[in-house]
Amino acid sequence: MDSTKLLALSGSLRKESYNSAAIEALTLLSPENIEVHIYKDLGNLPLFNPDLDGEAVPAVSKLKMAIREAHGLIIASPEYAYGISGVLKNALDWLVSGEEFVSLPVALINTSPRASHAQAALREVVTTMSGIVVENACVSIPLLGSGLASDGIVEDIKMAEQLSRGLSELCAAIRAIELHKAMHATSV
């Protein structure tokens, strides 16, 4: 694998979101062989309706295609009322019945270390959907109240190192999974 393609989802629709800033910082920190694509259309998804699952809903098809094209996923979500943001939960609900998420390596970013309930819920949802939470790739950085945007995060040595390490760990896990698949395919 020459290049690693990662999809990043922010569970916040706020213009000045710390979660969005964290994943934008990842795009600035990523080396040339790692492409971090930020999916910006979660707010365009209709509310999940099982009656429409399997139908051609353009916004859902676009999300599923982006997931299929990615080697791994990065999720940054705020915590609302001790849970995952509604927009992110809605997106994940649309992905439950598909194969796109199965065995997909996932890194979680927490921008408020005191907010642990959403992270725990996110781990549970991702695991239930058969995604692989790469624990060494999960990062918690103290952005809440910092006023930092993506460029400020990159300039903060400690936060930049944490994000870079998480990115490196996610890519290492993806390479290990790909190697395992290739070895299994040749031994069958």
Rank of each mutant, 00 (worst) to 15 (best):
E99S: 14
V125G: 03
S103D: 13
A66E: 13
E155L: 00
F48I: 03
G147N: 02
A149C: 08
S150V: 12
E79T: 04
A59D: 07
Y80R: 04
I34C: 04
E69H: 15
A76F: 15
E16H: 07
L148P: 05
S61I: 03
V106Y: 11
H71Q: 05
S112L: 14
T128N: 12
V96C: 01
T27L: 08
C138D: 06
S112V: 12
L148D: 05
T128F: 01
T111F: 07
A21Y: 06
E16R: 04
V96N: 03
E99Q: 10
M129I: 02
V134L: 04
S30E: 09
I153A: 00
L45F: 14
E69L: 15
Y18L: 01
R123I: 13
N33S: 05
Y39C: 10
K64D: 11
L143M: 04
N110G: 10
G147W: 02
T127F: 10
V96Y: 06
V139Q: 04
G98N: 09
S30D: 08
S77L: 06
H71K: 10
P105W: 14
E69D: 14
V125F: 03
V87L: 07
V60K: 06
Y80P: 07
S12H: 01
P113C: 12
E99R: 15
P105I: 09
A115D: 10
S12K: 08
I75N: 07
I109P: 13
G147R: 02
M129V: 01
V102S: 06
Y18W: 08
L122E: 06
A81W: 09
V36E: 13
D93Q: 07
E155W: 06
P50E: 08
P105C: 11
A118D: 08
E69C: 15
S17P: 10
A22F: 00
E79S: 05
S146F: 07
